[in-house]
Amino acid sequence: MKRLLFLFIILASITTIAQQQYSVNGETYMLQKEVDGPLTLLWNSIDNEYRYFLQKDNTITELKNTEVNGEYQEEYKEVLQLQTSDTSLAVDDVKLTLPSLRDFVVRYNKQVDSTYTSEKKSIQLKTRLGAFVGASNNVYYTNPDNTVLPAFGIDFEIIDEVKLKRHAIVFRFKQLLKNSDYDFSNSEFSLNYRFKFIKRSAIEVFVNTKLVAYSYASRDVIFINSSGNEERITGSGGDLQTPGAFGLGADIALGNGYLTVSYNDIVAIGRESSDEFPVDFTVGYKFNL
């Protein structure tokens, strides 16, 4: 378990995204530089909202699109026109998204500087780290009385904010704890893929697919087998599995991160389960690194 926790710490530390501090209208923000040139594009996710800024000379202006009575005002287009008034670029089709703004700013920089070059980013990796607690009735192992055991663990999530916004890879460590009624414990490290079929600034809802998992179980379980005889399973050991297990979950924006809830391993293609209905819920909190 200590090795797995150490691995999570290493992964988190090597994926830190470089940012710089900027002052905008008396407020200080940590921003990422998306395009650097005569016109510079800055951005970041601040309080779970994507915010974009233009820097020209020493002046930084925020791009906004406020909503009034259900209609968006598109103030950012006026700012784009003012900042690029020395060219004939049209702003009508520019959207307040990172790819659209990036393309516009690069086109402007090329018009005002014939020597300007820009390498288009194919990916923009971001990471999230979280912890969770939960409970499971462990239907994929022998559980004669359908006992629900407590669980806890950590998630490390990798997402791409450019081309694969609805997709994520998650490394998960989950520890299942024994109790007086059911002498079973299990440590599991798994690789998961998530598809976010609902993705909003306030909430993301996803299907989770467990692709591969390594489990190390310790147990002393007495049960009645199919022949009606008492049988006992004892000992400990680990195995590598490709369960193809599916679950559902949601990340709800809260503070500098997300309240995350999930219903795990509802069905597993590569595993045999008991006749009991699967109960495997977790709730936790994750934050942006």
Rank of each mutant, 00 (worst) to 15 (best):
M1I: 14
K2P: 03
R3Q: 09
F6P: 01
I10A: 14
S13W: 03
I14A: 03
T15Y: 05
T15S: 13
T16Y: 07
I17L: 10
Q19A: 14
Q20K: 09
Q21F: 06
S23Q: 04
S23H: 05
L31N: 00
K33Y: 02
D36V: 06
G37H: 10
L39P: 10
L42D: 02
W43H: 13
N48K: 02
E49G: 05
R51S: 04
F53Q: 01
L54R: 00
K56V: 10
T61K: 06
E62V: 08
N65W: 07
T66S: 01
N69F: 00
Y72P: 04
Q73A: 02
E74G: 02
L82C: 10
Q83M: 11
S85D: 02
T87V: 02
S88W: 08
D92G: 04
V94W: 00
V94L: 02
K95T: 01
T97I: 14
L101F: 14
D103Q: 09
Y108V: 09
K110S: 14
V112N: 15
V112K: 10
D113E: 06
S114K: 12
Y116F: 10
S118L: 12
E119Q: 12
K121G: 13
K121T: 07
S122M: 14
Q124N: 13
G130K: 00
V133Y: 15
A135N: 06
A135V: 05
A135C: 15
S136D: 01
Y141Q: 13
Y141C: 11
T142W: 04
N143I: 09
D155Q: 03
F156P: 00
I158M: 12
D160F: 04
D160M: 12
E161A: 08
V162A: 06
V162L: 13
L164Y: 11
L164F: 04
K165F: 03
H167L: 09
A168E: 12
I169F: 14
F171H: 03
L176M: 14
F184Q: 04
N186L: 07
E188N: 03
F189Y: 13
F189D: 02
S190Y: 07
N192E: 02
Y193N: 12
R194W: 00
F195Q: 09
K199D: 10
S201G: 09
E204A: 13
F206H: 04
N208R: 10
T209G: 11
K210G: 06
K210D: 07
L211D: 07
V212M: 15
A213R: 04
A217E: 11
V221A: 01
I222L: 13
I224F: 06
S226W: 11
E230K: 12
E231T: 15
E231W: 03
I233H: 05
T234V: 05
S236G: 13
G237D: 07
G237K: 02
G238C: 15
G238Q: 14
D239F: 15
D239H: 12
Q241I: 10
F246Y: 05
F246C: 04
G249C: 15
I252D: 05
I252M: 09
L254T: 03
G255Q: 00
N256M: 08
N256V: 08
Y258F: 05
V261Y: 08
Y263I: 03
N264F: 15
I266K: 01
A268I: 05
E272Q: 10
S274A: 03
E276R: 14
E276H: 14
P278S: 13
D280L: 08
F281S: 07
T282Q: 12
T282M: 11
T282V: 11
Y285H: 04
F287N: 08
L289W: 06
